[in-house]
Design a protein around this nucleic acid. Structure first.
Lengths: 287, 287
DNA sequence: CGCGAGATTGACTCGGGTCAATAGTAGTGG
DNA sequence: CCACTACTATTGACCCGAGTCAATCTCGCG
């Protein structure tokens, strides 16, 4: 996946952005422009948009799997809203390691981190063919002058993203590997449901490595944990196809440590058991 | 510290907020009001503020050590800017565990996470006596209509906070305990420097437990790591007094694992050494 | 001076990272 | 169509970093 890395290595993004006659140019086919109301609907923001928004049109751009929407350090000038497709945003540390920050999909906004320094702080890569709506930031703020509701939309979106990241920090700081994977699955299921897809059966659009990076785990741990959930009957796993069998148990799954109060008691029994049947399967505790 | 927890348990915050004649009421003493320019200066935002901002005054409020500025779920209506003092913001998970999200100090903004749902998503607690500037959100957006630069200030501050949280996620997801503590110290030193304090010698305003929560570690690990840095000569530690001795080494400190390529080679030498001088001090690898 | 919160340090354990081998899958080209 | 290659995923063996439990020390405060 991520395609043959032809697209991985070319920074054609900027040329793709504006009026490139190639892959994004045709302005008649399909849906290449959206008005403000459609944008707000996508964001799930119930902003009462006033009159003639038909003249406030925002251009769409298509990205193919593996293409970069923007890269770290690139001059910031536009925000993006995902109309369709799946992406990842990543940080690159000082020696090339990727750290996945999010998996944006329909209705999510990209590029907000570029506002502060006027340069994007993260990199966005398409995990599938994508259709994005361009929101030129200058145009947006200018519009804010006329349409006050737009300003509130922006505040709302940025605050929402901030809350999401806070939850992420809480998860990375406090939860066990099992709990992280469980919550990741639940969160994905919820998002698919919100998009009208099945929340019980879906395909992961990212690799185990990317999931691991996102959750602060290794790909092996992710794989093992999925297998464990499968054995317990919480989910079914077949490569990237995930079936959710017990969403409740996944939601309430916590660290194993809390069941540590019985550690000493287990110790004796465990040592005895080890002599009888070494390598016994472990049971995960839910709730 | 955190004072006698009398103040910990009382949600008097709301009554403190507006015109309480008690601790924050007097409107003549000290500096109880700031204009827009002063606010922008505090935020380190170089927004060209236009004319008569003298009539745009924002009230100050004082909080004592241990008091809550806002709690999770409380109705959102105002943002805060720290004028002096130190605080922490925390998330409370479903069973009471605190997760520290940030340690705001002079120039930082609080409450942004409340915009989205109109309820604060985190809790802010004063770690020392504090002086905060109130920014009623309604008033702020109304002002945005007249002073466009204010809008950009808001976007900038929110984006900055978002980038900060992204860096936090990257750290929690990828760095070792040593690296996290090292970066935490460097970051604190930088912030103290930016406030005009010494970056070489300062006092921690928070407990080991709070640092650990912030960094996704236990308090024991934090304490041990500080001791280790002390032994190596990177810092000096005496309770909450920290002296930075080798800022460069702290900045470039990485995971130990990367030096894992030599693990097997070390193994033999290590086992041999253990027989000769068991319990030998360990050396941390920098860069 | 004693009390309680915080900090330090040691001993022990285990969750999850590392290394490595194998197997399934997709895209490519003959 | 099937081999060939490159990714991706699964699984096992091993071990280390950091969590847990616990004892002791320090310090500020009533």
């Amino acid at each position: 996946m991520l395609s043959t890395d032809t697209s991985e290595s070319r920074p054609t993004t900027t040329s793709t952005l504006h009026s490139s006659p190639m892959e994004a140019g045709r302005q008649r086919q399909g849906r290449l422009w959206s008005n403000l109301k459609e944008v707000c609907d996508l964001l799930h923001i119930t902003a009462a948009v006033s009159v003639n928004t038909e003249e406030l049109l925002f251009q769409h751009v298509q990205f193919k799997t593996g293409q970069r929407v923007h890269t770290i350090g690139q001059a910031f000038d536009t925000l993006y809203i995902v109309n369709s497709g799946f992406l990842k945003t990543v940080l690159i540390d000082e020696f090339g390691n990727e750290q996945v920050l999010s998996f944006p999909m329909k209705g999510d906004m990209l590029g907000v981190d570029g506002i502060h320094t006027r340069h994007y702080a993260s990199e966005a890569v398409a995990l599938s063919d994508c259709d994005l709506i361009l929101l030129p930031f200058k145009k947006l703020t200018a519009l804010g002058r006329v349409h006050m509701e737009l300003e509130n939309v922006m505040y709302g979106v940025m605050s929402r993203e901030l809350v999401r990241e806070q939850a992420m920090i809480g998860m990375l700081g406090a939860l066990s590997a099992e709990a992280r994977v469980a919550r990741f699955l639940v969160s994905l299921a919820d998002r698919f449901a919100a998009m009208g897809y099945s929340s019980k059966l879906f395909n992961l659009r990212m690799t185990r490595h990317e999931i691991g990076s996102y959750l602060g785990l290794t790909l092996e741990t992710v794989s093992r944990t999925l297998s464990a959930f499968n054995e317990i009957g919480l989910i079914t796993v077949d490569q990237r196809t995930i079936g959710i069998k017990d969403a409740e148990a996944l939601k309430t799954l916590r660290r194993l440590p809390p069941s540590r109060s019985r550690a000493k008691q287990n110790l004796a029994a465990k040592q005895k058991a080890e002599q009888e049947q070494p390598g016994d399967g472990q049971v995960l505790t839910a709730a």
